[in-house]
Simulated scan of single mutants.
Amino acid sequence: MDETAPPSPAPPTAAGAESHYRALERLYASAPVNALFASELTIEGEGRARIGFDITQDVFHAAGAAHGTIYFKMLDDAAFYAANTLATDRFLLTTSFNLHFTKPVRGGRVVAEGRWVSGRRRVFVAESRLVDAEGEEVGRGTGTFMRSRIALSGLPGYSQ
């Protein structure tokens, strides 16, 4: 891991921020793992991200509900992208993530809502919650993300 973080870039202009948000949405869509899921990312503004996700039987565990890895994927991604709205130059890496399951999901549309909490230079903290089609919270998570050496501009999905 990168032990010395590069200096934070100047905050983007409003147009620059919108461009960064759309580039993050393209980056999400271009990740090969996301081709496995019916999901989409929407960056709502600085420090906020939403991922809509359709839960189908192909992600169920043996007892007929979404497997915990699906909760993790959605919660981690929503928190990650909320944090990466504040890092306009570097890709962030998840360094830790705590999650709490509160209700099984047996299918339908769920939304992961991510929100940046703190940090702007080297380490970022963000939280997320997962809401089912009835509007009930089914899971919650908090993650820590670190600025990497990977330039966002060098990633194919981001730089289109």
Rank of each mutant, 00 (worst) to 15 (best):
G68R: 02
Y81V: 13
V123K: 14
L155E: 04
T85V: 04
R22I: 12
A82E: 07
R129E: 14
V111A: 00
V59D: 01
R48S: 14
H61N: 15
A10Q: 10
E113D: 09
A29F: 01
A133R: 08
M74E: 04
A35H: 08
E18P: 05
R26M: 03
E25Q: 15
Y28H: 12
R106F: 06
E25D: 13
R115F: 03
G108W: 07
A15D: 15
R122L: 04
V105F: 01
A62H: 08
E134V: 07
M1E: 13
E136W: 12
A83M: 08
I55L: 03
E3V: 05
A49H: 00
L152T: 06
G108N: 11
P104R: 06
P11T: 13
S153Y: 11
N98K: 12
K73S: 09
P11K: 14
A78W: 01
A63S: 11
A5W: 02
P156T: 14
R22P: 07
D76P: 11
P156Y: 13
I70G: 06
I43Y: 04
T85A: 05
V125S: 08
L75M: 15
R106G: 06
T144A: 11
L152G: 03
V33A: 05
R121D: 15
G68Y: 02
R106M: 05
P6H: 12
R50Y: 03
A14P: 09
I70A: 13
T102M: 15
Y158N: 09
A78N: 00
F145V: 09
T88H: 05
A66C: 09
L41R: 00
V131M: 08
D54W: 02
E113H: 07
S96A: 15
G143E: 07
T4Y: 08
E113P: 02
G139I: 14
G114L: 08
A14Q: 06
G64K: 06
R147A: 05
G68N: 03
G157N: 09
A133N: 05
L130G: 00
T94F: 09
F37Q: 03
E113S: 06
V123F: 12
P9W: 07
G107T: 09
T95V: 14
R121I: 05
V125M: 10
A35W: 04
A87C: 15
E3F: 06
E18D: 14
Y81N: 13
F80R: 13
I51H: 00
E113M: 06
G157R: 08
H100Q: 14
E127D: 14
K103E: 12
V105G: 01
R140C: 04
Y71P: 01
A126Y: 12
E25I: 15
S19V: 00
R129G: 03
L41K: 00
G157I: 07
M146W: 08
V59G: 01
R48A: 14
D76W: 08
A133G: 06
D58T: 12
G119Y: 07
L92P: 08
G135N: 07
I55C: 03
F53I: 01
V131R: 03
A23V: 13
V105H: 00
G45E: 12
G154C: 07
A35Y: 05
R26F: 01
L41I: 01
L86H: 10
L92T: 12
Y71I: 03
Y21M: 04
G107V: 11
A63V: 06
P6N: 12
G139S: 12
V59L: 01
A133P: 01
T42P: 00
T88R: 03
R109V: 00
